[in-house]
Design a protein around this nucleic acid. Structure first.
Length: 324
DNA sequence: AAATGTGGCAACCGCCTGCTA
DNA sequence: TTAGCAGGCGGTTGCCACATT
């Protein structure tokens, strides 16, 4: 306690670094290496504290730092590692060459975290946000057959969702218990890559199951309202004509229901456009423009695309409060 | 055009850990 | 054994640019 600050702040500069300061720091480290951070600023002729120099070097000036946007693969890696490691940004950064812990932390807080929240995933536990779901009522009302209900061919395999729903509790429990055990083992055996890999594999399985669970709940909420909507708005559900008006064309076209195959973690990548591609191939609807999603999307477009995949457009004829 | 709001990110703060004398 | 120190880490702040009103 009462530890003195790492340096005497009197007379030392703070705030943004100037190009001249950067240049001095780079030159000094190139010549002598970082060495002792406390003495470095004085030797390098900088009016900064050692901590500030270290931070500037490790987070910004280091030559091996990769700048620019995070790739989809990097984003996936961050999410997966975070599900295993939590807010261990340095540990995550160690597995992402060229990225700093600070950069990953910022990216998480400004992009990934918000996206997970929007998609109903708790960014801390990586599980569905149970506070938003009435689990007991949902679990007790799973007996329905969508295909016969609507006479529609669902491109998403509803039975798979239902099956995964049924087996999920046992599997989740087993995996969770296994993970807890692995976590405790990992804490006692630092650096065990095997354990870490196993943990990550388990976590991925867990995430996938959780996603199915979330998808199922969302899906179930949505389709419970469809029969009413269909009878009110669609004269013939098997019509080859595009649905009128209220349903977003990307979901109900030519009598087919299109649901995203991957709508748990809605990542920002639009490269997996198999849904859209198949839609494009099968559909005769000329009004549906793919240009916006097939061309290189902006971040906003990707977000928009993902969020569109995550929901049905709520028809005006439905009470949105009941629906949600 | 100006005021206000929002998002992104570099930088800082303070605690923790491991090393060493 | 322990106190002091340096470096590392995660959380937070504050500035700036851009968007919205």
């Amino acid at each position: 306690m009462g530890r003195s600050p790492c340096c005497d702040k009197n007379g030392l500069k703070r705030g943004p670094w100037t190009p001249e300061e950067d240049h001095k720091l780079i030159q000094y480290i190139q010549l002598h290496g970082p060495g002792n951070w406390r003495t470095l600023p004085k030797n390098a002729g900088l009016q900064r504290c050692g901590k500030s120099c270290r931070l500037r070097w490790t987070n910004y000036l280091r030559p091996d730092i990769k700048r620019g946007r995070f790739s989809f693969e990097e984003e996936e890696t961050i999410i997966q590692l975070h599900s295993v490691l939590g807010n261990k940004w340095s540990a995550i950064a160690a597995r992402l060459p060229g990225r700093t812990d600070n950069e990953i932390k910022n990216y998480w807080n400004t992009h990934i975290r918000k996206r997970l929240l929007r998609n109903g995933i708790d960014p801390v536990t990586h599980s569905p946000r149970l506070d938003l779901l009435d689990l007991s009522s949902l679990l007790n009302s799973t007996q329905f057959n969508l295909s016969s209900l609507l006479g529609l061919q669902a491109l998403v395999n509803v039975n798979t969702l239902l099956a995964s729903h049924n087996e999920t509790p046992e599997l989740l429990l087993q995996k969770l218990q296994e993970n807890q055990l692995l976590n405790s083992q990992l804490q006692n055996q630092e650096g065990s890559e095997l354990l870490l890999q196993k943990l990550q594999q388990n976590q991925l399985l867990l995430n996938a199951q959780m996603q199915n669970q979330t998808q199922f709940f969302q899906f179930q909420n949505q389709i419970q309202e469809i029969p009413n909507f269909i009878t009110q708005n669609v004269p013939c559900s098997s019509s080859s004509q595009p649905m009128q008006g209220h349903v977003e064309e990307s979901y109900l076209m030519n009598g087919q229901m299109l649901l995203p195959q991957n709508f748990g973690y809605c990542n920002s990548d639009a490269s997996d456009n198999s849904n859209i591609q198949s839609l494009n191939n099968n559909s005769s609807n000329q009004n549906f423009s793919l240009d916006s999603v097939m061309s290189t999307p902006t971040e906003d477009e990707k977000e928009s695309y993902c969020s569109n995949l995550m929901k049905f457009e709520i028809p005006a004829s439905l009470n949105s409060d009941d629906f949600m």
